[in-house]
Write a protein that binds this DNA or RNA. Structure first.
Length: 555
RNA sequence: GGCCACGUAGCUCAGCAGGAUAGAGCAACUGCCUCCUAAGCAGUAGGUCGUCGGUUCGAGUCCGACCGUGGCCUCCA
């Protein structure tokens, strides 16, 4: 709120200075306002004077003084305007204005911090989308945390968000899955059989085969390899899919839509899409294959849609899938992929262009991988033996809250080092507890207030003015930042910034707790502080909710 | 070889469309519980922001080259 107000005030001041001939005619341009890093620099700082002065080739300090002098007084909002440094104009908000945030939190409750920047925009976030041929690995956990929190924060910014999981239940990976089970099945029944070269070697495949033997004995022995593979695929992929779903549920990640690749084929969408592209001249035949002219849309070279064998590529069904997304009316589709798929981005964007939807309607977030550590020692993963730590195993050791918090802590552009020992520790080294503890501590204060029978009704404006110490004002200022934070995280797609804010807010609360006692003999001050503490609790709950972890009342 | 990301304190990382004296946690050291939760607080120490050049009034942030790490370069997914 106050950002727009101050921007408008600056614009008027610049115009006034120009009208009065104090500075030559100049457009203020886009006015940048930022939260200064240092407290002495006030609540907001603007560099208009710096940018205007450089265009006018004037002394920036003088320009700043002139603009600052033209600012209309608004004592109920701004207590002080000053020029500092090379020519910044710093704004100090009035304490009364700062305290108003408490009434806003009280009125809006769980909706506090919401923004309307995304209003009217229908967005889909597609993430995880693992092949249903095995358990989720730890990297999937990171992308689940990332996608879900991004969806949360975009929803809070008024985007109409849908979460989707694309089920790759078709094609090569499924065949490998079926073959692998078949091989283990034969092995268990004493038939000499070699595992397929590129099959899945994980222990879970053996478990699936063991269950089949236990339930069905040798009844599939007589089938041809092909029939057996088909049978096992149909029997077991729903099992894996359920498994994946329940793992995600443990992390409280729920999808609105589970979209099946098979359905695309069954409904003829893949064929229809490649046919359309060919009919429109966007795809052509060469050496028996059908190629999409992706090189005309920024890709390095053209890509195969349908192999010379007549088999569509994964790319073809992915295009059909994105075409389907577009027909569902999303203004924007965000795909979260593993960083190892980055080479795939230009061709998918090219396909969006080729279909006439425009590459801009697809955004791809590339999530970097997770490196597991245990007490500082890297946890080895071997694809050959299948000895990986699955997401489920991680969640057996680490609480889902800790896992989600750790996954979200780093920028998606950075590789994540996840130390299992650290995440397990229920101690101050673990930031998730630090934030949750602030919430629990407030709940304890509120319980205490309730038990001691003090008046907990809302304070008057006069009583609220009793909040005046530095630690109180710092805390109030931080509460007011939530809306900007939500907008920032939503627009830049950087949900990891939520954790930093949560820690800052918790830290300011702990500082306040040190300096100020809430429940005291002073009834009016007690009411004011209780009101503030309830607001802090509400905001912590909101932020923890966006991060996707719980807000415990006791610890 | 080409393309992409990353390189900031001993370690793991933030750093908000270029801004004022570069931040946090951990690890190290020093203090603080007759008091609403010490899962807390306060303090000390720790930096040529990979290197070199460029753009700018101003660069950790933008551009170029180089070095290092990881990933991808298939009619695989």
């Amino acid at each position: 709120m106050s950002r727009e107000q101050i921007t408008a005030i600056i614009e008027r001041a610049v115009r006034k200075a120009v009208d009065e001939g104090a500075i030559p005619p100049v457009e203020p341009g886009r006015i940048e306002l930022e939260r200064p890093k240092r407290k002495e620099h006030g609540d907001w700082a603007s560099n208009v004077a710096l940018s205007v002065a450089s265009r006018l080739e004037m002394n920036p300090r003088e320009v700043a003084e002139t603009i600052a002098g033209s600012i209309e007084p608004a004592p109920e909002v701004i207590s002080k305007v000053e020029v500092a440094g090379p020519g910044f104009i710093n704004f100090h908000m009035s304490p009364a204005f700062i305290r108003n945030v408490l009434f806003e939190v009280s009125e809006k409750g769980a909706l506090f911090g919401g923004s309307s920047i995304g209003a009217g925009r229908k967005v889909q976030v597609e993430f995880v989308s693992a092949n249903p041929v095995g358990p989720l690995h730890v990297g999937h956990g990171r992308w689940a945390a990332l996608g879900d929190s991004l969806a949360n924060v975009m929803s809070h910014a008024a985007y109409d968000v849908e979460r989707e999981f694309y089920v790759n239940d078709y094609g090569t990976q499924m065949q490998k899955f079926g073959h692998s089970i078949s091989a283990r099945y034969l092995e268990l029944l004493g038939k000499v059989n070699e595992m397929p070269e590129d099959g899945y070697a994980g222990r879970y495949i053996i478990e699936l085969a063991e269950r089949i033997v236990a339930e069905h004995g040798d009844e599939y022995l007589e089938l041809s390899e092909e029939e057996r593979t088909e049978t096992f695929i149909e029997m077991e992929y729903p099992v894996m899919l359920d498994h994946i779903r329940s793992t995600l549920e443990r992390m409280d990640v729920l999808f609105d839509v589970w979209f099946s690749e098979r359905e695309l084929y069954r409904k003829g969408e893949v064929e229809k899409t490649t046919g359309l592209l060919e009919a429109e001249g966007k795809a052509y035949r060469d050496e028996g294959a059908l190629w999409l002219r992706t090189s005309e849309f920024g890709d390095e070279k053209d890509r195969v849609l349908v192999r010379s064998s007549g088999e569509p590529t994964y790319f073809a069904s992915d295009i059909a899938y994105h075409r389907d997304k577009m027909t569902r009316g999303f203004d924007l589709v965000i795909d979260i992929w593993g960083a190892d798929h980055h080479g795939y981005v230009p061709r998918m964007k090219a396909a969006m262009d080729a279909m006439g939807y425009g590459a801009d309607r697809l955004e791809v977030i590339l999530g970097q991988l997770v490196k597991l550590f245990r007490g500082g020692e890297p946890v080895r993963m071997s694809k050959r033996t299948g000895e990986v730590i699955t997401l489920d195993e991680l969640l057996d050791e680490v609480t889902p809250d800790a896992a989600r918090y750790f996954f979200l802590q780093r920028s998606q552009d950075s590789q994540l080092e996840f130390d299992i020992e650290l995440a397990k520790r229920e101690s101050p080294e673990n930031p998730v507890y630090y934030v949750q503890y602030a919430h629990a501590r407030i709940c304890s204060i509120l319980r205490y207030a309730g038990e001691s029978g003090v008046d907990t009704s809302d304070p008057s404006h006069e009583e609220l003015a009793l909040l005046e110490t530095e630690s109180e004002m710092d805390l109030l200022r931080k509460l007011a930042e939530l809306e900007e934070l939500v907008e920032f995280c939503a627009e830049r797609r950087v949900p990891h910034r939520l954790t930093g804010y949560a820690e800052e807010l918790a830290s300011l609360f702990h500082g306040f707790y040190r300096d100020c006692r809430v429940v005291t003999e002073d009834e009016r001050l007690t009411r004011a502080r209780l009101f503030m503490v309830r607001a802090v609790r509400q905001v912590l709950e909101i932020v923890l909710g966006l991060i996707g972890v719980g807000a415990p009342e006791k610890m």
